[in-house]
Simulated scan of single mutants.
Amino acid sequence: MKKINVFINGFGRIGRALLRRLLEDDRFEIVGINDIYPQEQYAYLLQFDSVYGRLRYGVEQKNDCIIVADRVIPLFNEEKVESTALYDLDIDILFQCTGVHLTRRDNQPFLDSGVKKIIVSAPPLDDMPMFIVSINDEQYQGQRIVSAASCSANAIAPVLKLLNEYAGVEAAGISMIHSYTADQKLLDAPVNTSELLRCRSASSNILPLSSSATVTLEKLLPQLDGRIQTHSIRVPVPAGTLYDFSMQLIRPMDAEGLNQLLEHVGYDKYREILAVTENTLASSDIVGDSHGITIEKKRTVNVTDRFVRLLGWQDNETGYVSQMIRLALKVAFF
C-alpha cells in the first residue's frame, strides 16, 4: 500500500509530539517540516525533551534535513511555506500545527500550492468542519480542510457520547485540570490579552482560564447543545490532564454499571481512544499514553442514582496527536 505523504507545518510541542508518533508508524512518509527557528534547534528539541525524555533514535541535522530513524526529512525555514514549491513534495496531508492558521481562508494558499488535504491541530475560528474519529467522522465527505478539534474535546467527547446513548445525559459539568502550555508565561509578565490571569506565572499558580471546549463539544455533539459546561484549570505540571466529570443522567445507572459500560461497550466503540484502568494514577503516569482518555475505574461514584462522577486522564500532547493520526488515516483514504 502506498504510504501517506505528510508535511508538518509548525514544530512546537504538538509538531514534535506528532513526529515522534509518526516515526513509529510505517504507513506514513514524512516529506517535510517547517518552522521559523534555527534548524539546529529542530534536531536538538526532537532528540531531547524535558517531558518525554531522549528520543530512542539518533538525530542529525545536515544540509537542510533531519536524519532520524533511517529517514531523511527536508527542513524549511519559511514564514510563508505555502509560497514555496510544495507541489514537488506530493503532500497528501499537511498537519497544520502552527496554532495561527485557524480559518479556511488561512489554509487555502496551501491547497493552491499543491497540498491535497489539511488537518488543523486546534479548534477553528470559522465554520471549518471538525472531526473526531468514532465521534462524528462518519460525516466526513472529503472536505480538504478540517480541524481535529482540541485535546480536551478528544478526551471528553467519547465519554459524553457513550453515556448519552445508553443512559441519556441531562447535564454535564467537566473540570479540566490541565498542564500548563507553551502560550503561558513562566514568570509574571504582561501579555496581549484581556484575560488578566494569563499574565501570571504558570509554574507558580493554579489558574482558572477560559477555554473553547464547551463551544467545541456542542458543535461535535449537537444532541447535547446547551447541556455541557467545561472549566479549564491550569496547574504547574508540564504534561497530563485530569478530567473531572459530574453528570446528571436521564436514566439511573450505578457506578458498577457505568464502569462496565465504559469498559466493554466503550472498548468496542472507541478502541484505542477510550481506555479503563484499575490502577490509581498520578499525572506523570499518563505521560506517553496514546489514548484519547483513560478512565480511572476506582474513582467512579454515584452521588444519587442519576448523578454520577468519574475521573479520566489524558496526555494532552501524545493522546491528541495520536487522534490526529487516526483522523489522517480516515481523511487520506476517503
Results as ranks from 00 to 15, higher is better:
328 A>L: 05
129 P>K: 12
231 H>F: 14
59 V>R: 00
192 N>W: 13
334 F>C: 15
190 P>Q: 10
291 H>Q: 12
294 T>S: 05
268 D>K: 10
75 L>W: 11
324 M>G: 07
326 R>W: 04
91 I>N: 10
184 Q>T: 15
122 A>E: 04
79 E>S: 13
68 V>A: 08
303 V>Q: 08
193 T>D: 10
211 S>D: 11
88 D>C: 05
129 P>R: 06
34 N>Q: 02
322 S>P: 03
153 A>R: 03
98 T>D: 00
266 G>D: 00
46 L>M: 00
55 L>G: 02
228 I>Y: 00
151 C>H: 04
96 Q>N: 01
156 I>V: 10
190 P>A: 12
53 G>M: 02
263 E>D: 01
183 D>K: 05
72 V>L: 13
10 G>M: 10
35 D>Q: 05
317 E>L: 11
293 I>M: 08
197 L>G: 03
179 S>W: 11
200 R>G: 13
270 Y>R: 03
315 D>V: 11
118 I>M: 02
249 L>S: 05
13 R>H: 12
177 I>S: 01
179 S>H: 15
202 A>Q: 10
310 L>D: 04
175 S>K: 15
75 L>A: 08
269 K>M: 13
188 D>W: 02
141 Q>F: 06
10 G>F: 10
306 R>S: 13
81 V>G: 04
301 V>Y: 03
252 P>A: 07
225 D>H: 15
147 S>H: 02
90 D>T: 01
269 K>S: 11
154 N>D: 10
292 G>T: 07
144 R>N: 10
262 L>P: 01
6 V>N: 02
283 S>M: 14
260 Q>K: 14
252 P>R: 05
151 C>M: 08
306 R>Q: 14
51 V>H: 09
134 S>C: 12
30 I>C: 00
212 S>T: 06
332 A>D: 13
